[in-house]
């Protein structure tokens, strides 16, 4: 077993040090403020996932989003609330169950796969083992344990990204300016692309070559 390539990831380094989009909240309209700041309050209790499912979905979400440590964006809680309320995307693939059933089915499938490969539940695997299982799902053509693999992967990624990148902490991480009503933006040209309150980045780098190395290494280990 070679070194876990993800250990070398630079994700821990902030790219926009000191930037806090919430400093601008006083300039947002009240309705937007209510919606965005609501995401910072205590998340609702888990209602959709059973305890067994919760134990699987937490590491799943952490691996898909590369969330290794606290404080975490409460993606699992946000996802649980959405599934509890049956808020769907407005369509269902004819060869897939509804999102809520697909989530439950996929968690059971992950656990079955994990017991088959490692003789242990998904929740009890190391992060590296969990990633290996997920890599296999992503690389599967066609069916994976009764679900179309590509559509399942899209459902997972769409769901977790939708909640993670709705959170102001994630906006700080990527340097996004956030809500802009009623103030708007005024610095939007090549000559001047940054509002006075936006922060310049440090250690900018093109992710492409690094991403290629990591992703190739992950697949080589399979």
């Amino acid at each position: 077993m070679s070194v876990d390539p993800d250990l070398a990831h630079p994700a821990g380094r902030p790219r926009y040090p000191g930037y806090n989009v919430l400093d601008q909240a006083r300039h947002w309209d009240d309705v937007t403020k209510g919606v965005v700041l609501g995401r910072l309050g205590p998340p609702p209790p888990i209602r959709f996932f059973s305890p067994d499912e919760e134990a699987i979905v937490r590491p799943l979400v952490d691996r898909l989003l590369g969330m290794d440590e606290e404080p975490r964006v409460p993606v699992v809680e946000m996802l649980d609330a959405q599934l509890t309320e049956r808020i769907g995307p407005g369509y269902r693939h004819d060869d897939m169950p509804d999102d809520w059933d697909a989530w439950k089915k996929s968690l059971k499938a992950l656990d079955d796969e994990s017991r088959h490969v490692y003789a242990a539940g998904f929740a009890d695997l190391t992060p590296g083992q969990q990633r290996d299982i997920l890599q296999k799902v992503q690389d599967t053509d066609g069916d994976w344990r009764g679900l179309p693999a590509a559509k399942l992967w899209t459902l997972w990624m769409r769901s977790v990204c939708q909640h993670f990148y709705a959170h102001p902490w994630a906006w700080n991480e990527i340097g996004f300016g956030g809500p802009a009503y009623p103030r708007g933006y005024k610095d939007h040209t090549l000559k001047s692309s940054r509002e006075p309150w936006e922060v310049a980045e440090v250690d900018a780098f093109d992710p492409e070559p690094w991403a290629q190395r990591v992703e190739k290494a992950k697949r080589r280990q399979q």
Partner: peptide
């Protein structure tokens, strides 16, 4: 096809 830490690094590069 990006996910995990790679996805996060791509996203940091958004601007």
């Amino acid at each position: 096809g990006h996910w995990g830490h790679v996805l996060r690094e791509y996203m940091k590069d958004y601007i």
